[in-house]
Each structure stands twice: as structure tokens, then as C-alpha cells.
Lab assay of single mutants.
Amino acid sequence: AEIMKKTDFDKVASEYTKIGTISTTGEMSPLDAREDLIKKADEKGADVVVLTSGQTENKIHGTADIYKKK
């Protein structure tokens, strides 16, 4: 799966169907969080990951919607 910015995804959204939401939390780098989200998306058969939230304090927390091409 590839990560797309919401603004970029909005241009092609009609080509995809939302298949779920994924999240990651833990003591990790932003890059590790990104890789974890991609891994989870791949496991669910998603083609595209669109980040919906991200937070960093002591731990990273990120959520994303996942989509499959129609």
C-alpha cells in the first residue's frame, strides 16, 4: 500500500472504496510508525493509506483510513 496525502487522495477518491481504519501506537520513530501503518494496510489488502491523525509526545499515535481500488 502507498501513503497518500489527503489533498492528493481527494483528486482520485472516486477510484477507491474505503475498507477500514488502522492505527499505530508506541515508542517508535515517525518512520517506524509509517512503516507499521503500511504493513497493517498491506495485511488488509489495501492499495492506499490516507493519514487522518498523528500525534507525538512521549509516544507516537497515528490513524489512517485504508482504501482498495474499485
Rank of each mutant, 00 (worst) to 15 (best):
T25N: 13
E35Y: 10
E2H: 14
H61N: 11
G26Q: 10
A13I: 07
K39N: 06
D10Y: 07
E27W: 14
L37F: 05
D36I: 09
T56W: 14
D8S: 04
K5W: 15
T63M: 09
A13W: 07
D32H: 09
S29L: 08
E15Q: 14
N58W: 10
T17Q: 06
Q55V: 12
D42V: 14
D47N: 07
K59Q: 11
V12S: 03
N58L: 12
D32P: 03
H61R: 12
V49K: 00
H61F: 14
K69C: 08
V50R: 01
Y67N: 00
K18F: 15
V50F: 02
V12A: 03
K70F: 06
M28P: 05
T63S: 08
T63K: 08
E15V: 05
K69T: 03
A41E: 01
I66P: 02
L51M: 12
A1S: 05
V12G: 01
T17A: 06
M4C: 06
T56E: 12
S23E: 13
S53M: 14
E43R: 08
K68V: 10
K39W: 05
E43C: 11
G54V: 12
T7S: 14
G20E: 03
A1W: 03
A13E: 06
T7Q: 11
A46H: 01
T56H: 12
K39I: 05
G54I: 13
E2L: 15
V50Y: 03
K39G: 05
D65Q: 04
V50D: 00
H61K: 12
L51F: 09
G62D: 08
Y67A: 01
K59M: 14
S29K: 08
T56A: 11
L37E: 01
D42R: 14
P30L: 13
M4Y: 05
V49Q: 01
G26W: 09
T7W: 10
L37H: 00
S53N: 11
D42P: 00
V50P: 01
E57W: 09
E2A: 14
E27D: 12
R34M: 14
K39A: 08
G26N: 10
A1I: 13
K5T: 15
D32M: 12
T21N: 06
E27Q: 12
S14I: 07
A13M: 07
K6A: 10
K18V: 03
I60A: 12
T63C: 09
T21Y: 05
L37W: 04
H61M: 13
G62L: 15
A13N: 05
S14G: 11
G54A: 12
G45L: 04
E57V: 09
I66H: 00
T7M: 09
K40F: 04
H61C: 14
D36K: 06
K11W: 05
E27T: 12
G20M: 04
E57D: 11
R34F: 12
A46V: 02
S23Y: 14
I19K: 01
V12N: 03
K59F: 15
I3R: 02
T56Q: 09
K68F: 04
S29A: 08
T7F: 09
I3H: 02
L31V: 10
V49A: 04
A1N: 01
E27S: 13
K11D: 05
D47R: 04
A13C: 12
I66D: 00
D10I: 09
D47V: 06
T17P: 00
D65A: 04
T17N: 08
Y67K: 00
V49L: 13
I60P: 09
K5C: 15
A33K: 05
G20R: 02
S29Q: 06
V50A: 00
K5N: 14
K69R: 10
G54R: 08
K69D: 02
V12C: 07
F9V: 00
A64D: 02
P30E: 14
V50W: 02
A33E: 06
T56L: 12
K6Q: 13
A46L: 01
T17K: 09
K69E: 03
E57L: 12
A64T: 01
K44W: 14
E27L: 13
S14V: 08
T21D: 03
D10E: 12
E27C: 15
R34L: 15
G54C: 15
I3W: 12
D8W: 04
G54W: 15
H61Q: 10
F9A: 01
I22W: 04
E15S: 10
E2N: 10
Y67M: 01
D8Y: 06
T24A: 07
E43A: 13
S53G: 12
A46I: 03
I22L: 07
H61S: 11
Q55C: 14
E43Q: 10
V50N: 00
K59R: 10
E15A: 10
H61V: 15
T24P: 04
Q55G: 10
V48N: 02
Q55R: 08
G26I: 13
S23Q: 11
A33T: 07
K68P: 01
A1M: 06
V48F: 02
P30V: 11
K59I: 13
T17M: 11
E57I: 09
E57R: 07
Q55I: 14
V12D: 03
D36M: 11
K5V: 11
T25E: 13
V49T: 00
T63H: 09
D8T: 04
G54N: 12
T52H: 13
A13K: 10
A33Q: 09
V12Y: 05
Y67Q: 00
D65E: 09
D8P: 03
H61A: 11
T17G: 03
K6L: 07
R34N: 07
Y67W: 03
H61E: 11
S53C: 14
S53V: 11
K68T: 05
P30M: 12
A64Y: 15
M28Y: 05
S23A: 10
T21P: 00
D32Q: 14
T56Y: 10
T17L: 11
T25Y: 11
D8R: 04
G20D: 03
F9K: 00
I38K: 08
M28G: 08
P30W: 15
T7G: 10
S14Y: 11
K40L: 09
I38A: 04
V50S: 02
K59D: 14
L31N: 12
I22C: 03
M28K: 08
I22T: 01
S14M: 09
R34H: 07
Y16L: 01
A41N: 00
L51D: 03
A64M: 06
K70A: 06
K69S: 05
T52P: 08
I19D: 02
T24L: 11
K6M: 09
S14C: 15
S23G: 06
D42E: 12
K70N: 09
D42F: 12
D10N: 07
I3Q: 01
K11R: 10
D47W: 04
T52C: 12
D42S: 15
Y16W: 03
K59L: 14
T17F: 14
I3F: 10
T17Y: 15
V49P: 00
T25M: 10
A64P: 01
D8E: 10
A64C: 05
K44P: 01
L51T: 03
K59S: 14
T56M: 12
E43L: 12
G20L: 02
K11A: 06
T7H: 11
G62Q: 15
L51I: 14
I60V: 12
D32T: 09
F9P: 01
T24W: 14
L31Q: 14
G45W: 04
G62S: 13
G26F: 14
S53L: 14
K18M: 09
P30H: 08
D8L: 05
G54Q: 10
D42Q: 14
L37T: 02
Q55F: 15
L51V: 07
N58A: 11
T7R: 09
T21Q: 09
T7Y: 09
L51S: 02
D42L: 13
N58K: 09
V50H: 00
T24Q: 05
A41V: 01
A33V: 09
M28D: 06
E35D: 08
D65F: 05
A41W: 00
F9T: 02
D36H: 10
A64I: 04
P30R: 08
R34T: 08
A46D: 03
E43F: 07
K6N: 05
D47T: 07
I38M: 08
D36C: 13
E27V: 12
I60R: 09
M28N: 07
S23R: 11
L31C: 13
D36E: 14
V50Q: 00
D10M: 11
K18I: 07
D36G: 05
I22E: 01
D42G: 12
G45D: 05
K5D: 15
V50T: 02
Q55K: 08
T21R: 06
K39F: 06
A1P: 10
G20C: 07
R34V: 13
D36P: 03
E2K: 15
I66Y: 02
A33D: 03
D42W: 13
P30Y: 14
I60K: 09
K40W: 06
T56C: 14
E27A: 13
Y16D: 00
V12P: 01
A13S: 11
K69Y: 07
T56I: 11
D65M: 04
R34D: 04
V48K: 03
I38W: 04
K68L: 06
I60C: 12
E15N: 12
G54F: 15
D36N: 08
K39V: 05
H61Y: 14
E57Y: 07
A1K: 02
A1F: 03
I19S: 02
T7E: 15
K6E: 08
V50I: 08
K70H: 06
E43T: 06
D36W: 15
T7P: 08
D42A: 13
Q55P: 11
L31S: 14
E35L: 14
K39P: 02
I66Q: 01
K40S: 05
D10P: 02
E27F: 15
D36F: 14
D47G: 03
E43M: 10
S53R: 07
E15L: 13
K18A: 06
E43G: 05
K18T: 04
E15F: 13
D8F: 05
I60T: 11
K44V: 11
I19M: 07
V48Q: 01
E27Y: 14
A1D: 01
G26C: 14
S23P: 05
K39S: 07
K70Q: 05
